[in-house]
Computed example of a mutant assay.
Amino acid sequence: MRALKTTSALAALIAFGAAAPANAGEGVRGWLSGDWYLTVGATGLIAPDFEGGKKYLLSATPIISLGKAGNPVRFSSRNDNISLALVDQGDLRVGVAGKFLWKRDNDEDALRGLDPVKWGGEIGGFFEFYPLDWMRMRAEVRQGVRAHKGVVADIAVDAFHDVTPEVRVSGGPRASFASSKYFDSYYGVSADEHSRSGISEYDPGGGVRSVGVGGAITWKVSDPVTTSLFGEYSRLMGPAADSSIVRERGTRDQFTVGVSATYRFDFTM
């Protein structure tokens, strides 16, 4: 629980910090004034114990989204990372995004002997639009901080349908890309790591990380409270699939299932 509170606090700092540099500019008070919303919550999920792993672990992650009220958010997904919309025109939203990354301790037998991956985060931006009334396309590009020095890009397309005013079903394809520095942190094996772990040396390049599909059933319990049941499948590709960690100690097939709950706070500045 302490880790979850710490993560939530760091996530909030990322979201608010992205807007801080604007304080020195003209018109900031005007931009900040008005109605805002803050959505907070948590996700409990069963997922691989590490990227490419074949054992599964129960864990929890925070959900935080901050934005100006006005055009209602037509669709959101548990794949959306911490975000702050700077441009919101209903069918088009653009802003900053951040993600917290847990430390990889390498206590598992499959990873023993590899260098640990530090906790850290990713900071960047997102772009989303609605080509159809029932479809949303979203892309995020983020730069690693501390945990890795690479760049990660995620793309997701979701079709959604309201079965009732309170219940929505959604789903669609996902794809993820990363630079060589990201793959080196999570999938690379140096000569020293090989001698300690027995896993074959591997020096990855950049490229596609994974492709997959995901879906969810969302229930709007009340105006501020929303819950969701979701499932995801991804197939590791490119440098991730070719990694000796995955080939010798893991699997390319990655499954995730879980539940989430969020609460929206409305406030005025």
Rank of each mutant, 00 (worst) to 15 (best):
P204V: 01
P204E: 12
G205A: 10
G205C: 09
G205Y: 06
G206H: 09
G206F: 07
G206D: 07
G206P: 03
G207E: 09
G207R: 08
G207Y: 10
G207P: 01
V208D: 05
V208G: 08
V208C: 11
V208W: 02
R209L: 13
R209C: 00
R209H: 14
R209G: 09
S210L: 04
S210E: 12
S210G: 03
V211S: 01
V211T: 15
V211P: 02
V211N: 01
V211R: 01
V211I: 15
V211H: 02
V211M: 10
G212S: 08
G212L: 08
G212E: 04
G212T: 03
V213F: 13
V213Y: 08
V213A: 12
V213C: 00
G214L: 00
G214I: 07
G214Q: 06
G214S: 10
G214Y: 05
G214P: 06
G215F: 04
G215H: 03
G215R: 09
G215C: 05
A216P: 00
A216M: 03
A216I: 03
I217L: 15
I217T: 14
I217H: 00
I217S: 07
I217G: 11
T218D: 07
T218Q: 13
T218E: 14
T218G: 02
W219P: 01
W219I: 15
W219E: 11
W219C: 03
W219L: 15
K220M: 00
K220D: 08
K220S: 09
K220F: 05
K220Q: 13
V221K: 12
V221W: 10
V221D: 08
V221H: 06
V221R: 13
V221Q: 13
V221P: 02
S222W: 04
S222K: 01
S222D: 11
D223A: 14
D223C: 06
D223M: 07
D223G: 04
D223W: 00
D223V: 09
P224D: 06
P224R: 06
P224T: 04
P224G: 05
P224A: 04
P224C: 05
P224N: 01
V225H: 11
V225W: 15
V225K: 06
V225F: 15
T226N: 12
T226C: 10
T226I: 12
T226S: 14
T226V: 14
T227E: 05
T227S: 13
T227K: 08
T227G: 08
T227M: 12
S228W: 04
S228F: 01
S228M: 06
L229R: 06
L229H: 10
L229S: 08
L229G: 13
F230M: 09
F230S: 04
F230A: 09
F230P: 13
F230K: 05
F230Q: 05
G231M: 03
G231W: 09
G231S: 07
G231Y: 12
G231D: 00
E232G: 11
E232D: 15
E232N: 15
E232Y: 13
Y233K: 00
Y233W: 10
Y233C: 03
Y233I: 07
Y233T: 09
